[in-house]
Simulated assay, not measured.
Amino acid sequence: MARMKFLCDDERCIECNACVTACKNEHEVPWGVNRRRVVTLDDGQPGEKSISVACMHCSDPPCAAVCPVDCFYVTEDGVVLHDKDLCIGCGYCFYACPFGAPQFPQNGTFGVRGKMDKCTFCAGGPEEDFSEAEFEKYGRNRLAEGKLPLCAEMCSTKALLAGDGDVIADIFRERVVRRADRDEKPAQPKVPWGWGPAYGEKKP
């Protein structure tokens, strides 16, 4: 059985935030909640890189381990979902998640968390597939339609990959091998005025 996973290639992410916008539009996510966000590492420094982060749908989700009402469940595809009818808004999942995936509405009274919301891998929730209740609580169920999450489909550089974990791993492995081959034989610019040494090429 396939296990659905996300992977963001930091060598390709250009911080365009198309994935964030696609997610909010597709699921009509409420104000103050971002199921997906782009994080920049070493901002403004050499080696700066960006990655798209959401729920990583862990094999052993820590959010489920700390939930006092057991509102989390894992589907046959390995997608971690939750039941908003059971959620009491305690916030334990938010503190347990290393990716900051669980989100709470920010337009309520101070100290009142409300129902937790998070990335569903576009797999809906426990309500009946394609029902109005499912869309209102969890957004569109693209997996039931035979489609991948829209965030990955909208990524222009294909930095964000989504799907069967084994397939994703194979794609990324091929990219790493191609990069290693490229770095061993870097393309030498053809400049006629003697800049060769700057590119590791010594002129006689």
Rank of each mutant, 00 (worst) to 15 (best):
E15C: 07
C97P: 10
G91P: 13
P46Y: 10
G196L: 02
F94A: 11
I171D: 02
N141Y: 00
R113V: 09
I51T: 12
C87L: 13
C67K: 11
R36S: 06
Q103T: 08
A169Y: 05
G194M: 08
K190L: 08
V33W: 07
K24R: 15
N107L: 11
G194N: 09
D77S: 13
Q45A: 15
Q103K: 13
E15F: 06
F99L: 01
A65F: 15
S50H: 02
A2H: 09
A169Q: 12
L161N: 12
M154P: 03
F94Q: 14
G200R: 05
D181W: 12
G108R: 15
G78H: 04
G32L: 06
F72Q: 03
K147Q: 06
E26G: 09
V39S: 00
S156T: 14
D166S: 09
D83R: 06
H57W: 12
D85A: 14
V80T: 09
E48F: 00
S156P: 11
M116P: 10
T109R: 14
G89L: 12
E76R: 10
A101P: 03
P192W: 00
F6T: 01
H27P: 04
N141Q: 00
K49P: 01
A101L: 05
A22H: 05
K115W: 13
H27D: 10
C19E: 01
G91C: 03
C8H: 04
R36M: 06
C16N: 07
C23N: 05
L160V: 06
G111F: 12
Y95H: 13
Y73G: 13
Y199T: 07
Y92W: 06
S131L: 02
P149S: 05
H82E: 13
R35F: 12
A64K: 11
